[in-house]
């Protein structure tokens, strides 16, 4: 009886896999890279914010996917 319930649980778990939301693949980010997909509307203001963030945090990036999501640029 026990192995059967274990199998049942495993089967149920494997079915759950289909429910998970898959992040887009690196080559599927065309839609996300569009300017209207960025947070905030004003490009100039965003640039200003990024500059402050970069100088305070010594890190930049993560504002869009135009760089391709490869950690470059």
């Amino acid at each position: 009886m026990k192995p059967l319930s274990l199998i049942g649980a495993l089967l149920a778990l494997s079915l759950l896999q289909a429910c998970s939301l898959q992040p887009p693949k690196p080559w599927q980010k065309g839609m996300l890279a569009r300017p209207e997909m960025t947070m905030g509307g004003d490009a100039l203001e965003q640039r200003f914010d990024e500059h402050i963030s970069a100088s305070k945090q010594a890190a930049s990036g993560g504002y869009g996917v135009g760089g391709g999501g490869c950690g470059c640029n």
Partner: peptide, 10 residues
């Protein structure tokens, strides 16, 4: 090479 129009380094 794999490239896309929305990719800056490309």
């Amino acid at each position: 090479d794999f490239w896309a129009s929305w990719c800056a380094p490309c």
